[in-house]
Amino acid sequence: MFRKDLSEEISGQNLAKTSVKKKMKQQLLNQYPSLETFIQDLFQKKNSIVVIKCSNKIQLFAFNNTVLFFSIRDGPFFPTLKLLHSYPDILPPIQVDEGAIRHIIGGADVMIPGLISKGGKLPEENIPKGSMIAIMAEDKKHALGIGVLEVETSQIPVVKKGVAAQTIHHLTDGLWNYISEK
């Protein structure tokens, strides 16, 4: 999703208007009810909120110079991995096995065999297709990526092969490099 060098892709950035802020705050609160106080804090008047536009219709949202969320084609707000690391509960986790880590860090999608093998793990309750998930890994504490489910989780053990989730944002990708440079 993100090319290796994101700074090349940035086409413009500007301060968010009040109307945009209001809309954004409401959407974020709806999407992440567990982060309420954190989000309320972000939208205090003294904080600067910058919208960074990139090519391919990606928008990054920086609060006081740290990118916390991004969106694709005005879609839902994705958290960045750093935010997910600090608040791991905001997305439901799926766990891949040791062997898949390398591929996902290389930018590959999450494949079903990596989830149903010995090291993989799926949440007990069903997660519908199209929802955001945190990609966790065997024996690791922190998430290594954020993806969107292509198959609902209850169907994953039945289907047995193919793509389980599209990887949107992962460690060492352009966005990660961009936010960890700062």
């Binding site: 982060l35 504490k141 922190h142 460690l171 060492t172 960890s180």
Partner: peptide, 25 residues
């Protein structure tokens, strides 16, 4: 409301240390 976890990042590759082996250096 959950508390923010403090995550340590490697000073060289800036990944969480458990992912260092997949980093560039």
């Amino acid at each position: 409301m959950t508390e923010a976890l403090k995550v340590e990042y490697c000073p060289h590759c800036r990944l969480p240390p458990e992912y260092c082996q997949y980093g560039p250096c």
